[in-house]
Amino acid sequence: VFIEDPEDEWIEKLNEELGGDQMHKHIDMVLHRFPAPMKSIYDLAVNQRFSVQEISKIKGISVEEVESYLVRTRKHLLTSFKGRYP
């Protein structure tokens, strides 16, 4: 979700500095507070590697809605990282 976006080298640098374990702990904690659909769609996309089209079928929502959830989740996670690691 993060590394594929070339605009945010900051996240890659943070990943190098913190290590994946620390980043995953933060992501787990933040996701824990997210609404259930956001958590679920993030999990399907990132952890279980389903495509947007597959998630759309699984969830019974449009591809655009899935993409919207992922964009919002990414945005909120980035915001949380910027607050946590200024």
């Binding site: 702990k25 933060h26 787990d28 904690m29 824990h32 507070r33 997210f34 609404p35 909120h76 915001t79 949380s80 607050g83 946590r84 690691y85 200024p86």
Partner: peptide
């Protein structure tokens, strides 16, 4: 939570992490 996510300070994030770890 999402409405306030931009407002949380570094200290608040650390506290949230500690609370989450305890849970």
């Amino acid at each position: 939570f999402l409405d306030d996510i931009e407002k949380f300070s570094n200290t608040e994030w650390i506290q949230m992490q500690e609370d989450y770890s305890v849970d």
